[in-house]
Design a binder for these strands. Structure first.
Lengths: 227, 227
DNA sequence: TGCAATGTTGACTGACCAGTCAATCTATTT
DNA sequence: AAATAGATTGACTGGTCAGTCAACATTGCA
């Protein structure tokens, strides 16, 4: 399965018909999201994707080097956007609580906006050791590390207590979010605009509540990170 | 893939050679854990399991109805033990923090004792919507609900604040644990006896810290659950 | 000793499906 | 209008693998 990864890095043809071509490519990607979400990556056939997109079987291979590459593309496309968001938040001047709140909001809104895509990313990539998770491990790790950096800074400022290692705290934070999405994906938690908003509050309340230092410690600024 | 689920519910032959037969069965199960952990359920062949166990291909089908049934068995075997532990803890008289601590300890110790098995359960079942996760959803849900019950009780006692719904809190708690295991599985977090112990503290600190009510609210006992 | 009954073997089959490719179509350029 | 290049089609192939089965082995009992 994971043998034939990629081969034609580009995917999208250049000039000329590029507009129409890009549209077809997107059509296939969107169809793939639906099919992967409905049947799972392993259980679906490439022909299911083609059928869902209303194109011929071979066209999938015109735009993508392999079935794997379709999923890779979907994952990277979304994860890069998320990494960018986290980097921006990290660089900004907000207090930790709001930084983490912004990240939680982004991920939960991603789910609200396209639950199928997030389902596919979580189910087929983020948790899939031995297959896609392993392939993209460095990309995934980067998110954890950026969150860890935010926690670290809060610890340096004395807002978060130091007893809990930043790495651990970052995993905890991300874990809570992903588990909430998992709850929605498996239909274990009710969904809806209200629920999503409340979930955002839960993430921040729960995790930050447990990480914050007693008010006294707000002294000792410690050494901030160079940048 | 998920078509031929079960057919011979028993699996273990009865009397007579039952001792030796049970051993062979276990031999196959243990081999399957290693193979599933190493290659993943989808990527491995039944012959890999047979080879790893040092038995003939056909013997796997003597003890199990299908490849799926092997994984089902591994999952259920472990999950039932966990459910029992949670039920005991729930019924006991400990304060919430210790109840949740005991659950976190159990899961983390399960990983320490048999990381391959926990890897398989998390990667192939717990997060696998559309395949095994879907099949076992009710069994999985039960764990979340039992944890929710513990949180609920703490809220009734005024130890945990009521703003965060028990269901959410339970998911958050479990999510933190599973994400830590995921960190170890993907080699994103260092492992070792010390790390595991610290992780237990992190889970309880982080989540309970965020859920506990300010000391004042310890009044209003509210209505306890009937039992 | 002989006869069930269960344990064990591995070659074989039938279905399935990712990926290929030669042919056809469409648009753009000159 | 002819030429070129990319877009689109879908039948076909080659390999893979879950599951079957008929034969052989071992065990316990009568």
């Amino acid at each position: 399965m994971s043998a034939t990864r990629s081969s034609r890095g580009n995917g999208a043809p250049r000039e000329r018909n590029s507009k129409a071509a890009a549209d077809k490519r997107r059509l296939i990607l969107d169809a793939a999201v639906r099919v992967f979400a409905r049947q799972g990556f392993h259980a679906c056939r490439v022909s299911d994707i083609a059928d869902e997109a209303g194109v011929a079987y071979g066209l999938v291979y015109h735009y993508f080097g392999s079935k794997d590459e379709v999923l890779d593309t979907l994952f990277l496309e979304r994860w890069q956007v998320m990494l960018e968001l986290i980097r921006e938040v990290d660089a900004g001047p907000l207090p930790v609580r709001e930084k983490l709140g912004a990240i939680a909001s982004f991920i939960i809104d991603s789910y609200r906006h396209d639950p199928d895509l997030m389902k596919v990313i979580i189910v087929e990539v983020t948790r899939a050791a031995n297959s896609f998770g392993d392939t993209h491990i460095d990309t995934i790790r980067e998110a954890y590390e950026l969150i860890g950096k935010i926690v670290q800074q809060a610890q340096d400022e004395g807002v978060f207590k130091r007893e809990i290692e930043a790495r651990f705290a970052a995993m905890a934070f991300y874990g809570v979010i992903e588990q909430l999405l998992t709850g929605w994906i498996f239909d274990l938690l009710p969904q809806g605009a209200d629920e999503f908003e409340r979930a955002k509050a839960v993430v921040v309340e729960t995790v930050c509540g447990g990480l914050e230092a007693p008010v006294s410690d707000r002294t000792t600024p410690g050494n901030r990170l160079p940048q």
